[in-house]
Amino acid sequence: MVIARNLDRVFAGGLAALEALNFEIARGAFVAIVGPSGCGKSTLLRIVAGLLEPTGGELVVKRNADAAGREAVPAFVFQDPTLLPWRRVDGNTSLPLELQRLPRAEIRQRVADALQLVGLEHYAHLFPRQLSGGMRMRASIARALVTSPELLLMDEPFAALDEISRQHLNEEILSLWRRNRWTCLFVTHSVHEAVFLSQRVLVMSPRPGRIVADIDVPFDYPRHHELRTAQEFSLIAAEISASLR
């Protein structure tokens, strides 16, 4: 689904953000990317999304087209919910479909489905300011899922939430992924979050970002809260932490 070969990104002024990245991500996989601040995790995600161009190497993102010939657009969940304050929850959720000029009836149906997926169907008429932090993030996830993406890119989406909300949303995102099986690239600072969510963790070095470890997470799904206290879980988390040093 996503293949990077010797991928480089140098910013204007000569600042090297990424250097010689090589990885392959299979369709339907859940892969976490961890690394220290400024190591280029977000830059990598933006390159995969097509928002930035690599300055060297090659990146291939295989996209399928729908019946109308439209190529699937990757969906992006940002660190902040970045909802439009003047739009209600349903209006925020419908935004990507409006931009893609889908028929109104289809938009209405897909928005209702997406809000139901994230448990916000009874809050569609509220403005973002009337929601809690966790609900805002769910609305942001609904906005990403409404396009039925093949590829979901998440850039530290739960970093600003309290630990309880974060763990709840971790479990919800896994449940959504198991039902829909989009390919997911999940950037996080939290080693425990990466291990709990993903099948595989890519560990990046400080700038310029390189992949210093590619660690499999062998736990079966569904994963429950108890996994976080299992010994094997701690061992993998320790291995990732050691790679980060």
């Binding site: 928002l51 969906a75 992006f76 940002f78 970045t82 439009l84 990507p96 931009l99």
Partner: peptide, 23 residues
């Protein structure tokens, strides 16, 4: 305008008119 929102619009191939009117 928040840079992430600009990215969101770009990701969905928004036209310049859509960016102006909707954002």
């Amino acid at each position: 305008v928040h840079a992430d929102l600009r990215d969101l619009f770009a990701l969905n191939d928004a036209s310049a008119l859509q960016v102006m009117v909707k954002l």
